[in-house]
């Protein structure tokens, strides 16, 4: 079982050490952790994807919440908006190159570097889409991969807008 936690913390020096240290010393399994600023300069949002059974996940939430710098911990529901960015270098030699470029176009990935033997692309979007892109690129041979880890926001609750998107 997996849970995505959205943690708001006071932007103090050492706050990441406090959160990361807690995870390590209590032996929790964390799949990804991503931190960055929010609309308020004093507050940082840490998105953490943790794995474990229900009691363990429950403990993680409580222990994180207990940290003095932590303002709130939200357990994200599947409806929330979740995104990720991945940069991936894929080997592109010989006959497979054309096929790969085709796939990149179909998936709408951003080509960021072109070499004789490799292509580097960026995949960004909903977590599932990024996961799917990486799965599709896998057979070509992934030479290097960097992922940001998930970030997540609760879907706003205001009334849905009537006007069409431009």
């Amino acid at each position: 079982m997996k849970k995505t936690l959205s943690i708001l913390v006071q932007n103090r020096p050492g706050v990441l050490s406090h959160v990361a240290g807690l995870i390590t010393r209590r032996g929790y399994n964390v799949e990804s952790i991503a931190a960055g600023p929010t609309e308020n300069v004093k507050i940082t949002r840490i998105t953490l994807v943790a794995a474990g059974d229900e009691p363990v996940l429950d403990q993680i939430v409580k222990q994180v919440r207990k940290l003095v710098d932590v303002i709130s911990v939200e357990v994200m529901d599947p409806e929330s908006i979740t995104g990720e960015l991945a940069v991936v270098t894929v080997s592109a030699e010989g006959a497979k190159r054309g096929e790969l470029i085709n796939l990149i176009n179909i998936l709408g990935l951003t080509l960021t570097d072109v070499r004789e033997d490799s292509l580097t692309v960026m995949a960004a979007g909903q977590a599932l889409a990024v996961e799917m892109a990486l799965t599709s690129l896998g057979p070509f041979g992934i030479k290097a991969l960097a992922r940001t880890g998930l970030v997540s926001l609760t879907r706003p609750t205001g009334r849905q807008a009537k006007e069409d998107a431009p």
């Binding site: 020096p13 050492g14 240290g21 807690l22 003095v68």
Partner: peptide, 16 residues
């Protein structure tokens, strides 16, 4: 000592 004592204090400070 700030880093060393994170796991064994309720909270800690390095006052810069």
């Amino acid at each position: 000592i700030y880093g060393i004592t994170i796991p064994i204090t309720k909270y800690n400070y390095l006052v810069k």
